[in-house]
Write a protein that binds this DNA or RNA. Structure first.
Lengths: 109, 109
DNA sequence: CTCACTATTCGGTGTTGCTAGGTACCAGTA
DNA sequence: TACTGGTACCTAGCAACACCGAATAGTGAG
């Protein structure tokens, strides 16, 4: 994809990850793989891990270490109450932006 | 609004401004006022001017100076062919992202 | 023992929007 | 005259975020 997606992901990637965690607990490697599968072909692994650290420090997720059969222990993240609240705020902001953009798209053609 | 919008605007604000210019030529002060009117209450003037400089340097817009009755001359920007192309690319990227997010929103509830 | 896959971490880079100031031009008013 | 306020633009420095590249570590296959 390229630079356009990269810039657009700023701010939304966080919401995406939180939305994933709202569905089920998950760990970094898994999330990265899932995103790549969904078409975010150029998401960098390091990006996801950094993001996870960030949302952990903000207290939006709970973490527990789970041993893996195939490698180092996994850090499994799950959304907590505060995270769910934040996610709703994210959806509100997203809706606002999406509405404005949809209006612009229609008006411009 | 707050930090959430700020981060989300990274990457999309450029598209928003290009979409505005696709409708009609406009100048910085005007664009800022219009955005504020549309609910982007905390868009900084400096941000728009910096963005306009950027897209001009990339050759996405044409510029001409128009004298104003009430102040310094206006720099009126209009979208050129290259800008229109870039805007379409922007819409494609936006659609991709919006689809993924919509899926996530539905799946998560 | 080396390779590949799983899994996480970290330092440095570039882009972007915000903050907070400044410049300049004009009209109305005390 | 001096001052205020609206119009219009520009700039330097800052913080946040995604990327890149490399490192570390565990496991199983060849």
């Amino acid at each position: 994809m390229g630079k356009l997606v990269t810039e657009m992901l700023k701010g939304t990637l966080e919401g995406i990850v939180l939305a994933i965690l709202a569905g089920r607990p998950a760990y970094g490697y898994e999330i990265t793989a899932w995103l790549r599968d969904q078409g975010f072909s150029d998401i960098a692994e390091g990006t996801i891990y950094a993001l996870l650290v960030r949302i952990e420090q903000r207290g939006l997720v709970d973490v527990r270490k789970v041993p893996s059969e195939k490698g180092p222990p996994r850090k499994v993240y799950s959304l907590n109450a505060q995270g769910r609240e934040y996610l709703e705020e994210f959806w509100r902001t997203w809706s606002f932006l999406a509405e404005r953009l949809e209006q612009l798209r229609e008006g411009g053609e």
